[in-house]
Structures are given as C-alpha cells and as structure tokens.
Amino acid sequence: MQKIKTALLSYGMSGKVFHAPFLHFHPGFEMVGAWERTKKLIQNDFPAVKSYSTIEELLEDDVDLVIVNTPVETHYEYAKKVLLAGKNAIVEKAFTTTVAQAQELAAIANEKGVKLAVFQNRRWDSDFKTVQKILSQELLGEIVEAEIHFDRYNPVLSPKLHKETANSGAGILKDLGPHIIDQALCLFGMPKSVFADIRITREHSLVDDYFDILLYYPDFRVRLKAGFFVREANPSYVIHGKKGSFLKPHGDVQEDELKLGKKPNFDTWGTESIENQGLLHTEIKGEIIKKLIPTLQGNYYDFFDGVYHSIINNTVEPVTALDGVRVMQIIEAAIQSSAQKKAIDL
C-alpha cells in the first residue's frame, strides 16, 4: 500500500488523542513528525518520528500531508502556508475564523491541485450515524422539527489560555458549534435563514459559552444548542416528523476511550453502551411502533480512510473545503443575528 507521509502542526491533546492513534493504525499513513514549540513529547510515544522546531522546517521536509491542529485563530495562516507549499492538508474545526478565509483556502487548494479536508470527525460518531440511518429510512415521515445538543456541565474556565482569551477563534460557537452545525447540514442541507442567541453565562468568562441557533428551512426548522450549565443531560438528538419521533442520547465513546490511551480497532471500537440506545416511536404500515434502536458503531478511522483515498485515488475528500465554507457561513450569520437580534437570510 502506498504510504502518505504525514506531519502534525502540534502534539497536544488533539494530536495525541484524535490524530496520532488513527495515523498509526491506518496502514496507508506514515507519521513523520510534529512541530513542537516548547514541550518535545511526540518522540516519547513514537521514537522514530521527528520533532520540528519551526513550520518552515516541517514544510521543507518530505511530507505529503499536514494536519493543522493548532488554535482556531491560527488555522488560516498555517493552512495557507501548507497549501502554498504544495502539501495536502487536514484542518481542524473551526475551519477558519471567517467565510472569506475559508473561501480563500479552498481556492488555493484548487489552484495548487492538492487535497484540503476539514476534520469534522463527529460525522463518524456512533449516535450521529444512527440518526442518519433513521432519517435515510424515512421512518419518521415528513420532518417537522429537529434539535441537536452538545451540552456539558462545566462552569470552570478552561486552563488553556487560547480558549478563554478573547480572540477571533475563541468561544463555544467556534469550538463545539462546528460539530453540530456540520451535522445539521449533513442531515438537512443549507437553511434559508438563521436566528441565534449567543451569550456568556460563566462567571469571569471573556468568551461566548452558550448558543441557541435556529436554522429555518421551507417546511421545518432545526435548533442547535450548546452550553456549560446542563447538569442533567438532554437527548443529543430530538427529531419529530409527521409520522413519529426519534430521541437519541449522547453515547459515542471514542473520545473518552482515546483519552484513556485505548487504541482503535475494527471489532469493538466505537461501540456504545446498550443503555444509550435511541427511542423510535412512529407508525409503520399502519402499526404504531415504540422501540429502542441498536446504535451503529462509530469509528473516526473512516475519516482518515477517506482522506487516504482522496489523495491516492483522487476521490472527493470525506469533508470538503466547501463543507467548511458552509459551516462558516452559518457561524457568521449566527454572530450577525445575535448582535442584531433578528433572523439573517442566507
């Protein structure tokens, strides 16, 4: 199998937890190193790889693919350097801080003939994959409304300064927001207009930590919510159609297992607890059905496999730059809506 030589732009939590395990597990990738500014940690886990002192040193090396997994406000600057150097790129969410930046990166990738993917790994969460299947089977009838939540109970400010310092990439809207915005767009496409309430709720917080976004479609609407004061969890997905409903608690285990140092596999990886099964209550062929639905397995491996084939076989990226542009369009509209207290047409 042809190898893709891959480097990371940092080896903090995201590099160690979300990327390195899958690059190591997938036979098509060869991890060559990471840019490490202060702490030199990657060689503790992978002794054979390099620790680069500068991004220029990394880009001058024999590298095919670069993962831009630095703070959001740096994504545009670093991704642009990567693409202009003729390297393929994966950029974490939020893709950029503005729509204009996202469009420019997409144009550069196209001009240079390289692949540019956005790391929207939550498309491969077990709970979301199950929701996708329910909707694809049209078990609920015509959709009337849907809600997607990414809730937590965590009133304490993050120790990571870049997350709590007011800057163009900070705040919950650009941290957790891209996950569920992207999921909504996957399920329902682009809305006609956006209304949003974005607030600060934690004491001493300098960045937004709550949002409530309404996406308006011609015949239904979708609500997206995230905040840090939800001690009793809501279902992550609530979907109501004219025939029935589907409620699905959050259950994907991948992030927790990766943080514990567990390694991905093809057998048991991404298997939710049976207690987190979704509830389907609908009508099928005149019969009222109310039952628990087994959860599909999740696996972020599929994202990396999609990137591999996009580079080697010139297929479409698993999450395209255009997907990233569309998420940024929703984010920009939400910010404008919250400031003006009105719905914004797209």
Rank of each mutant, 00 (worst) to 15 (best):
Q2V: 04
K5T: 03
T6G: 02
S10W: 01
S10P: 04
S10V: 04
S14T: 04
S14M: 13
K16Y: 13
H19I: 11
A20T: 12
F25M: 05
V32S: 08
T38F: 14
K40E: 11
N44I: 14
F46C: 05
P47G: 09
P47D: 11
P47A: 04
A48K: 13
T54L: 10
D61V: 11
L65R: 02
V66H: 07
I67H: 10
V68T: 01
H75M: 00
H75N: 02
E77Y: 02
A79I: 01
L84T: 14
G86F: 07
K87N: 08
E92D: 13
V99Y: 02
E104M: 06
I108W: 15
A109F: 15
K112S: 04
K115N: 11
K115A: 05
L116R: 11
F119S: 12
D127A: 06
F128T: 02
K133Y: 15
Q137L: 15
E138L: 12
L139R: 11
H149R: 14
F150D: 06
F150M: 07
R152F: 13
N154Q: 08
L161F: 00
E164D: 05
T165A: 10
G169P: 02
L173R: 00
D175Y: 14
P178A: 00
H179K: 04
I180G: 00
A184I: 02
L185D: 01
L185R: 02
M190H: 04
M190L: 02
V194H: 01
A196K: 07
A196G: 04
T201H: 10
H204K: 13
H204V: 12
H204C: 14
S205I: 03
V207D: 00
D208L: 06
D208E: 07
D208Q: 01
L215S: 06
P218A: 05
D219E: 11
R223N: 07
L224M: 03
F229D: 13
F229E: 08
A233C: 07
S236W: 04
V238H: 09
V238C: 07
H240C: 09
G241Y: 06
K242A: 04
L247D: 08
P249D: 00
H250A: 08
D252I: 05
E255D: 10
E255F: 09
D256V: 13
E257G: 08
E257V: 09
G261M: 14
D267A: 11
W269R: 11
T271H: 00
E272T: 07
I274Y: 12
E275F: 09
N276R: 05
N276Y: 14
G278M: 03
L280V: 09
H281S: 14
T282G: 10
E283W: 06
L292H: 09
I293W: 10
P294I: 08
P294L: 14
T295S: 13
Y300K: 10
D302P: 04
F303I: 07
F304I: 03
F304V: 06
D305H: 08
D305K: 06
N313I: 01
N313L: 12
N314Q: 12
V316W: 12
V316H: 13
V319S: 07
A321T: 11
M328W: 07
M328V: 01
A333F: 05
I335L: 06
A339I: 13
A339G: 08
Q340E: 09
K342Q: 10
K342V: 08
L346V: 01
